[in-house]
Design a binder for these strands. Sequence first.
DNA 1: ATAAGTGATTGACTTAAGTTAAGAAGAGTT
DNA 2: AACTCTTCTTAACTTAAGTCAATCACTTAT
Lengths: 219, 219
Amino acid sequence: MRDTNEGAIEGVGLSAYKDQMDKCLGEVSLTEEELQAISAAIEIRAYKAGTILLEAGEIATECYLNLKGCVRQYYFIDGEEKTTFFYTEDQPIASFASATKKMPSTHYLSCVEDTVLSVMSFEKEEKLYKKYPRFESLCRIGVEEQLGDYQEILAKYITSSPEERYLNLLETRPDLLNRVPQYQLASYLGVKPESLSRIRKRIMLKPGVNVKLAQVSMT
Amino acid sequence: MRDTNEGAIEGVGLSAYKDQMDKCLGEVSLTEEELQAISAAIEIRAYKAGTILLEAGEIATECYLNLKGCVRQYYFIDGEEKTTFFYTEDQPIASFASATKKMPSTHYLSCVEDTVLSVMSFEKEEKLYKKYPRFESLCRIGVEEQLGDYQEILAKYITSSPEERYLNLLETRPDLLNRVPQYQLASYLGVKPESLSRIRKRIMLKPGVNVKLAQVSMT
DNA sequence: ATAAGTGATTGACTTAAGTTAAGAAGAGTT
DNA sequence: AACTCTTCTTAACTTAAGTCAATCACTTAT
């Protein structure tokens, strides 16, 4: 379950990286040479649905940018998989707790769908930082933005009920509902599958509450 | 409610920063000049309990390192304060979602106790980055570690029940129980104060479950 | 010393989530 | 088409959290 379907995809990764970089403020722009060097360090890989990218116990050595598909982060607790994140198109994937401290990862990463990722090893990334400080600036900004996102996601999670979390998902990531099995979504929302089923029913029955959106989820 | 009790504390901030830096791997070490420049950009401020550091609606312009005391992050939702984080000694405090996007903050930061912070403006920080790339390396590593921490915290929160979260708090941050009012802790654990009260009772009554720790919380 | 205010606990009751078990719906196979 | 496997739903029941209201404990103010 760890094969790499190298496809006829090339250059895609770099342009996605450039888009990503452009988002990190116009301040930092890279030269041809820098882009070349980064491009050389990036590998584009295609994975089949079900492929495991990282296992609990391993040390994370690579970071990814999701070009196409869906990657699920989960823990294995008391004999159960507990899903804690879904990474879809344009989202960076990096298990920093493991990578920065060289500690074994506590979670798994696996592909929910056939997935295409842009891959860079942390090792190569470090080398690039030394050679091209502007690349490090860019990544520093990117990581700061990610940290901001995570702070907000955590706060949103703490301050809302399972039902509110589901409604929030409907608004912010409606695509997930048609890409991911519902029992994994339930776990992600912090409830059992049976409860999510009831939440969905409850919402459908409610008077005005966004029937349109609720329909989407029933497709 | 926004006064600054400048104290006779000086130099404390820098040494704390140095400790913080030392933790960011021995790889990057700074010269005298760099330390001087950083020191010049840092301000040590003492705040009285209750002081608000950042209000919802404001754009965050400063980041902090907690030298002494406790800062609470909270949202104001449906007429209620919802606590989402407590920052204590040696923890960095930065509202990146607001700072990096120059967007109004959605949360408040306020001092639960009399608090001493090392303060740097994001503006000065950016200038230092340009002059001293090694300082940026150091901060990049620091932010990556923080991101790793947040990823783990979020996952832990998603995968545990209120009772488990409370037990986890007992193990990882027992100090908070004696520093912070219980209704704020309840909010932080995602439950109402009455529920936390019942959780505590339940734990006390349970056979073997860490009676010693439970006692601490009863002090 | 008393009164007022805040925070924590308790009780009675409601609502929502967990549990267990049984079916229904769908996709894929042979 | 019949079968299998997985996912989702439903039902009945248990447990925990929300709600509302009263009380208790403690601190602070007058």
